[in-house]
Simulated scan of single mutants.
Amino acid sequence: MSFPRILLYGTIILFGAMGSFALIKRLKGSREAIEQAAEISQDEKERELLKQVAALPKTPVASFTEIKIAPPAPLEPVEEEDFPACNRMQQLFSTGPHKLPIVETITYTSNVPWLKGRPAWLADYSNYYNTSCHFIARSLNKKLDYLSQKVFPGSKFNVFSKDKKIQFYLLLDLSRRKMGLYYIDLDTNERVLLKTYLVGAGKLDEKRLSGSLTPLGKFSLANKIAVYKPGDIGFFQEKRVEMIQVFGTRWIPFKEELEGTTGRAKGFGIHGAPWLKDKETEGYLENRDCIGKYDSGGCIRLLQEDVEELASIVMTKPAVIEIVRNFRTARLPGVEKGEPQHK
């Protein structure tokens, strides 16, 4: 290739490069100008928004540090009206003339129209009348004996009336450590207080809404009630223990949470006072001193005669417990009937 032609091509390439460089510089300047314009536009929007906010009327707002939630008041002895006292157990178990309307007296016979092919035993009466054998035994034996079931033709005992639809309702006042047992007649919507028990409750804990390790609220009671005697071994808190030393002779567990509960049902229940080993005799002594005190891990404690009585009643019927700090705040079902008609 001749020198003049080479010079021509070089000149063309040089001018082309210079033109491209100028074009790139111009485009870059345009982009920077656009970005700068956008930033200015955004700044103007923000300034305008700040002006609008500043023009709004001033409304005082409480800061979080000004909001204080008072802790629940500690459970202390109350001086106002006490929990109603009552004991109608005689009218429930007695076969005499002044029975409560929810029971009827049966005269035992082995030949009954509702069972064919074999004689009827006490357990058959229990199933037919939906009344626990423990309840029948107490009425039959006419004393606090829930296990002996020696029955003869002509023996008399009480059962729950088949034509009565009832449920039981327990109301526990934590401040007073007292618990009322009611029956509710579901047909008439009447409520009758049967007995008031002195109880032991969970240890005091001011951090809890109840003021105690015992939770507040309504719980249903399970009908699978455990009966313990000396020598019965089980597990408690993952340790093998003699159950009577923890639960006494009966364990009535909570079944499920119903309303306004501050704790779960699992692990809570009603049981007897613990039995302690007597080092001298190697026998057992019931720790009756724990009743009326805040001394448990959250469960409700009763004396042996009280927990065995209660278990015999609620074992075969639906039952609910409502736990409150003060019985006056309770939401009891039904209409109170102070003096039920005798049957």
Rank of each mutant, 00 (worst) to 15 (best):
P57M: 07
N141H: 01
T95G: 15
P153A: 04
L147M: 08
L100E: 12
K68R: 14
N130D: 07
P60F: 15
F157I: 00
M89S: 14
E81G: 05
P57A: 08
Y108H: 13
F152Q: 10
N158R: 02
T131W: 05
L115W: 04
I69A: 11
V61P: 01
R88C: 06
I102V: 15
S155P: 08
S94H: 04
L56V: 13
K162E: 08
N158C: 13
V159N: 01
Q90A: 09
N127P: 02
F157E: 12
Q167T: 07
L115Y: 06
H134V: 00
L140D: 00
Q91G: 11
F152S: 12
D145C: 01
A55D: 13
L122G: 07
P119Q: 10
P74L: 08
G96V: 02
P84G: 13
K164Q: 11
F135Q: 07
P77W: 00
P113V: 15
K150H: 11
V159G: 04
F64R: 12
T65R: 15
A70V: 05
V61E: 11
F83N: 13
K51M: 09
S63N: 10
K142I: 08
D82G: 08
V151F: 10
T109N: 09
Y128E: 09
Q90D: 03
K51C: 05
I166P: 14
S155F: 08
Q52L: 13
D124C: 03
E81K: 12
A85R: 12
N111W: 06
V78P: 01
V53F: 10
K156V: 08
N87L: 13
S139E: 07
K58R: 11
E80H: 10
Q90L: 04
R118E: 13
S148W: 04
M89F: 02
I102Q: 03
T95L: 07
F135W: 02
P113C: 11
K116C: 04
F152R: 06
P60M: 09
R118M: 08
S148K: 10
A62C: 10
N111G: 06
G117R: 03
Y146M: 02
Q52Y: 05
F64C: 03
I67M: 10
Y128W: 08
P57T: 01
P74F: 10
P72M: 15
A55W: 14
P84N: 10
T65D: 15
V103G: 07
H98V: 00
S132V: 03
K165F: 06
S161W: 09
E76A: 15
E66M: 12
Q91P: 00
T95P: 11
V159A: 04
H134A: 15
S132R: 04
Y108D: 06
A123E: 06
A54Q: 15
S94C: 06
Q167K: 15
S94F: 08
G154S: 12
Y146N: 11
V103M: 12
S126F: 01
